[in-house]
């Protein structure tokens, strides 16, 4: 469904992403892991169009996204979260979702009703999404007043507000406790249950090994392995990539 073809991004001499090709299938949860600085976030930025690739293409269902603007990709069904949360702190929780309703179906609404409807008439879909993210009680609170965990949940809800087909999650569990990780796993599964394909970047191995269908591993910008969680755990290249990070290797082994 989502295909990266020989995708590269070089920053001067740094090959942040180097000739990466992979295909994410419709409806799966696909893990993207790798040591710090291996190019995971850059890959997401290439898929959403925040960065233009040095070479290569991004394809969604046969459509070439590479030259599309970011908002056009949203309309095509791509949505994301950021590793370092980027909410609209000056808007309320509900408004953060409201401004994000830029999906394909939503774009077809009448211009006037889409832009100039007052806040009181915000749709039920927003409340439903807030309920799903356990944020309904905070709907009229400024986003800047949320706790860290709530901010992460709101950012994921905001990404879902455009009814995406692919959701790119950049370290959604960073800074979260293990229980929070469990709840997050449930929510990601529920998102998958709604028919959304998920690309999950994560350092928390338990989470990645537990819920992904397949995984690709990046190291120094290049893809060094791809396979099921079980295959990845056995892979020697992956183990040596994480070498020096003994802790991670233990996690890999036990997860």
């Amino acid at each position: 469904m989502l295909t990266l073809e020989n995708l590269s991004k070089h920053f001067g001499g740094v090959r942040a992403v180097d000739d990466v090709s992979l295909t994410i299938r419709e409806g799966e949860i696909f893990g993207l892991i790798g040591p710090n600085g291996s190019g995971k976030s850059t890959t997401v930025n290439l898929i959403t169009g925040l960065y233009a690739p040095t070479t290569g293409r991004v394809m969604l269902d046969g459509y070439d996204l590479t030259t599309m603007a970011q908002h056009e990709r949203t309309a095509m069904g791509v949505a994301r979260t950021f590793q370092n949360i980027r909410l609209f702190g000056n808007l309320t929780v509900a408004e953060n979702l409201w401004v994000a309703q830029n999906g394909h179906e939503q774009r077809r609404a009448h211009f006037l009703s889409r832009w100039f409807r007052a806040g009181g008439e915000r749709g039920a879909d927003i409340d439903e999404l807030l309920e799903f993210s356990r944020l309904l009680s905070k709907r009229d609170v400024p986003a800047s007043a949320l706790s860290f965990g709530e901010m992460r949940r709101l950012e994921m809800a905001r990404a879902l507000a455009s009814n995406p087909r692919v959701l790119l999650l950049d370290e959604p569990a960073a800074g979260a406790s293990l229980e929070d990780g469990q709840l997050l796993a449930e929510r990601i599964r529920a998102v998958q249950g709604r028919g959304v394909t998920v690309l999950l970047i994560e350092h928390m191995m338990e989470l990645v090994m537990g819920i992904t269908d397949r995984i690709a591993v990046l190291n120094f910008g290049g893809k060094i392995a791809e396979g099921t969680p079980a295959e990845i755990q056995r892979n020697d290249d992956v183990r040596s990539a994480y070498l020096g990070s003994k802790h991670k290797n233990e996690e890999l082994a036990h997860a």
Binding site: T74, R86, W98, V99
Partner: peptide, 18 residues
Amino acid sequence: AVLRAVGHDEVAAQSIGL
């Protein structure tokens, strides 16, 4: 709300399809 969102964070605003 959209004007204020853009004023707050252009990168985030683009990422949600504005």
